[in-house]
Every structure is written in C-alpha cells, then in structure tokens.
C-alpha cells in the first residue's frame, strides 16, 4: 500500500503552514486550535483512507479470449464494499503478453456503487496475455491523499487469437470452398456471434429483422472436409498466414464444416464443434511460439 499527496493536499498543508506561522507569530491560541484541528483532520483523513482501502480485494474477474483486433473487455468486482461506497475507488489494470508488457495496455475505471467495474483494454497482440498489475486507489475521504493498493499477482491468463482477416480468396489457397456458399442456399439461420465472419451473415434477414443471423449449411457441409495448411500460403508473411488461417477457421466453424489445421509442428485433424474450434484458435495464437 502506498500513498501520494494530491494537489489539494499540498494546497491544504500550505494553507495550514501559512496560518500556523501567523498564529505562532501572534501567539493566537484560537488560530492554533483551528489550525491544529484541521491538521488533525488531515491525519484522520489519511487513516480513514488507508483503512477503507486495506481490506479490499478483487473478485469475480472475468475476461474472455478474443481476437487481436478487438478490444479486451474485463469485468470484476471489489469486495468488501460497505454502504454502497464502491464508487470511491478507482482501479487500473494492465495486460502483458508472454513477451512483456504492451505499452499503453493499462485501463482505468471507477467502480460502481456496488464495487463492480468494467474495463476495456486496447487490442492486444495475439498469444497468451496475462492480466495483472492491478492497482486499486482512492482519494477517500478528503481528496488530499491518494492511497493505492497494488495486487501484483497474475489475476487471469487468456488467449488472444489472431485477427481473422481474409488476405486471400479461399478458392486458390489450399482449401476447398463449398459450392453451396456461392449459390446462397442454406439450411437454417443461427444467431451470429461476435467474432464470427461477416461473410456468413444473412443480410436479407438482417434487412428484415435488424438482427444478424448466420447462415448454416447443414446438408451441404455434410461430408465436406477442409484442411487449412500453413505451408499452402507461401506468399504471405507469418502474421498474415495466421490471420488468414484464423479467418478460414472462423468461417468454417460458422458453416459447420469439418475442418482441420496444419501448422508447422502441429496438425489438428478435421473435426467440428466448439472444442475443436477453440483448439484451432489456440494453436493459431501460439503457433509462432510453439
């Protein structure tokens, strides 16, 4: 726990010092009493700020893996919060990748009255990202001192997947594309989720309902196997390859295709489902480091 005096605190002490000098010079007891009472107020405020901050802990930290081009949303709560005074506390949280801290990856927010907070970190580089270096601070009660409580531990560790970017057209790049996708015939609509390719969105439905729905090609995808190969993209850089492969994986997963992934040293056999999808994304996020 550390403390730092604020501008208001400096001003307050300066006022007290000035008036204390005057009271000393005139030996004015009332001046002394008032100055010392306010000085006592400063000390009591310091104690109260420390006492209010000391028992605080971070709880229910929530952060979901996301893509490298998306901002990282983190939620959580400070406990214990008494008397709905959660808004007294400011919180800052930083993210660091496995290669070190990312400059500017610090988010600050004020907690709500119940202590809950939501932070949004800037887009992170793909790979394993650790959330930590959390500092809770407060200027409670009088705004003259800022007490800070630092929690050094890694609070959460999440994957940041490569940004799904279609650098190439799918047709000529190592994967076979389902013909049904071009014909526009699909079997059913499913809710479109954040992170999925916009290519799978049924725009007609969107125009009618205002909700993004994903086209599912159940019949057509049956029996189709795709294999996304790292080595089949010789014209792209490594980062572009990861983005492209990620794009295909997201697309294929959205369509319900059976797809596999071949990366240097890693081969994931064609499969479907959420678990396979996550494995592919994690493999892509960690492919360079593997």
């Amino acid at each position: 726990m550390s403390v730092r005096i604020t501008g208001l605190g400096v001003g307050f002490l300066a006022v007290l010092a000035l008036t204390l000098a005057g009271a000393s010079n005139t030996n004015n007891s009332f001046g002394y009493l008032l100055v010392f009472t306010l000085l006592g107020l400063f000390v009591v405020a310091a104690f109260r700020g420390a006492l209010r901050l000391r028992p605080l802990q971070l709880a229910r930290l929530q952060a979901e893996s996301t893509f490298a081009d998306r901002r990282l949303a983190v939620g959580g709560a400070l406990t214990p919060i008494a008397d709905s005074m959660g808004s007294l506390f400011d919180l800052s949280l930083s993210a660091s990748s496995q290669h070190g801290a990312v400059p500017g990856s610090v988010a600050r927010a004020q907690a709500g009255r119940d202590g809950r907070f939501e932070l949004t970190l800037p887009p992170q580089p793909c790979g394993r990202t650790r959330l930590g270096d959390c500092t809770i601070s407060t200027v409670y009660p009088a705004g003259m001192l800022r007490w800070s409580l630092r929690l050094d531990a890694v609070l959460a560790s999440i994957w940041i997947y490569p940004a799904p970017i279609d650098h190439l057209s799918m047709a000529g790049a190592g994967g076979s594309r389902h013909a049904a996708a071009e014909s526009g015939d699909f079997d059913e609509l499913d809710a479109w989720r954040d992170g999925e390719s916009l290519a799978g969105v049924c725009w007609k439905s969107y125009a009618r309902t205002g909700k993004r729905m994903r086209k599912r090609f159940l019949q057509a995808s049956r029996g189709t196997e795709l294999c996304f190969d790292w080595d089949a993209l010789p014209t792209l850089s490594d980062a572009q390859k990861r983005s492209q492969l990620c794009f295909w994986v997201v697309e294929a997963h959205a369509r319900g295709d059976r797809y596999g992934l071949r990366l240097p040293g890693i081969e994931l056999r064609p499969d479907t489902g959420e678990r396979h999808y996550r494995r592919c994304l994690v493999a892509l996020a960690g492919s360079l480091d593997a």
Binding site: S29, Y32, L33, F36, T37, L38, L39, G40, L41, V43, V44, A45, R48, D83, M85, S87, L88, R113, V139, Y140, P141, A142, G143
Partner: peptide, 29 residues
C-alpha cells in the same frame, strides 16, 4: 470529491473527520 455520496452522508463523514481530530489538536495545542 465524491459526488455520489448523499448530502447527509458527507456531513456525517465530515463530522467523523473533525471529531477524532480534536484530541490530536489538543495535544498539539
């Protein structure tokens, strides 16, 4: 400093700051 706190609350807090300050003020006096 804390606009979220209600008016009654802040003056209770102010009293809570000034009253404990009195013994220290007397000692210093």
């Amino acid at each position: 400093e804390h606009p979220d706190l209600g008016p009654g609350r802040v003056f209770r807090e102010a009293l809570g700051l000034l009253l404990p300050a009195l013994p220290l003020a007397l000692v210093l006096f």
